[in-house]
Computed example of a mutant assay.
Amino acid sequence: MNDNITEINKDTFWKLIQSAKETCGQDMDAMMDFLKDRLVSMGPEQAQNFHDILHAYEDLADKFGLWDAAGVMKEYGCSDDGFIDFRAWLIAQGRDTYLSALADPDSLAEVIPYEDCCFETLSYVGDYAYEQLTGKSAYDQTDWARYETLLAELEQDIVYKGGIEFPREGPELKQYLPRLCTAHPGWDGKTRWNVQQKEMRDLIRAGKAYDQRQAPKKKHRSHGGEAR
């Protein structure tokens, strides 16, 4: 597919991801080869740009509410490393799916899971291309001041669902992600947060309090005539 991309920015990043998706479907090895070959053809600067943008999108998706969704979708739960691989897999689904998942993780009920929702090697494709071109690592070449500016720029396009920053336990999670939990009946209804950690207990309590504040208020029936 000729997509005429010669420079990687936030828009052409997603255009290249879409080209790879349309060309390779769910074949992740083929998608890796497709992306690497394209980046090599564009040169080291564009390989570095792709690397930085991909990792910025992974960082911007580092939210407990999305992690909970990953735990429902993945067959054996979702570890720290597994969540990184899940975020890469989510990016591989394209811009609309990625942004929708952050606006509402429950939208992932409409996404067909495959390969246990993991795409570890996608995180490395920019680095692989950069190393082939220069013999150096894209990780070592990242300009961190520029990266912070990039994060702020990319975040402007993201609308996060309220409460996405909190982890949830089983009953609360079913209320937060009702369609996704229904779409994955094999999920055991459990979460695997380490509640022995005070920080995690505090976050779970904060999420529960947030959800209670957002819940519709029950109307009380008046007795003895109309309310005044």
Results as ranks from 00 to 15, higher is better:
residue 105 P to S: 09
residue 74 K to D: 04
residue 40 V to H: 03
residue 88 A to S: 15
residue 213 R to P: 02
residue 142 T to H: 08
residue 26 Q to F: 00
residue 102 L to N: 05
residue 34 F to G: 03
residue 43 G to I: 03
residue 45 E to F: 00
residue 138 A to Q: 07
residue 141 Q to C: 10
residue 182 T to S: 13
residue 185 P to C: 06
residue 91 I to W: 06
residue 53 I to E: 13
residue 225 G to L: 06
residue 60 L to N: 11
residue 216 P to E: 03
residue 16 L to A: 09
residue 212 Q to R: 11
residue 92 A to M: 05
residue 199 E to W: 01
residue 143 D to K: 13
residue 97 T to E: 13
residue 120 E to R: 01
residue 176 Y to P: 03
residue 122 L to Y: 00
residue 174 K to C: 09
residue 75 E to Y: 06
residue 192 R to N: 15
residue 26 Q to I: 12
residue 127 D to A: 10
residue 138 A to D: 08
residue 201 R to M: 12
residue 82 G to A: 11
residue 28 M to V: 08
residue 154 L to G: 08
residue 86 F to N: 06
residue 26 Q to R: 01
residue 6 T to L: 13
residue 201 R to Y: 06
residue 207 G to T: 02
residue 97 T to A: 12
residue 206 A to R: 14
residue 41 S to C: 09
residue 38 R to F: 00
residue 61 A to C: 11
residue 213 R to Q: 14
residue 62 D to Y: 13
residue 11 D to K: 09
residue 70 A to P: 02
residue 79 S to Q: 13
residue 124 Y to R: 14
residue 28 M to S: 10
residue 227 A to D: 11
residue 113 P to D: 10
residue 183 A to Q: 06
residue 104 D to A: 06
residue 137 S to R: 12
residue 30 A to I: 04
residue 18 Q to C: 04
residue 89 W to C: 04
residue 147 Y to M: 11
residue 104 D to P: 00
residue 150 L to G: 09
residue 209 A to K: 15
residue 201 R to T: 15
residue 180 L to A: 10
residue 154 L to V: 14
residue 194 N to S: 14
residue 196 Q to W: 06
residue 209 A to T: 15
residue 100 S to H: 10
residue 121 T to E: 15
residue 216 P to M: 08
residue 24 C to S: 05
residue 58 E to H: 07
residue 180 L to C: 08
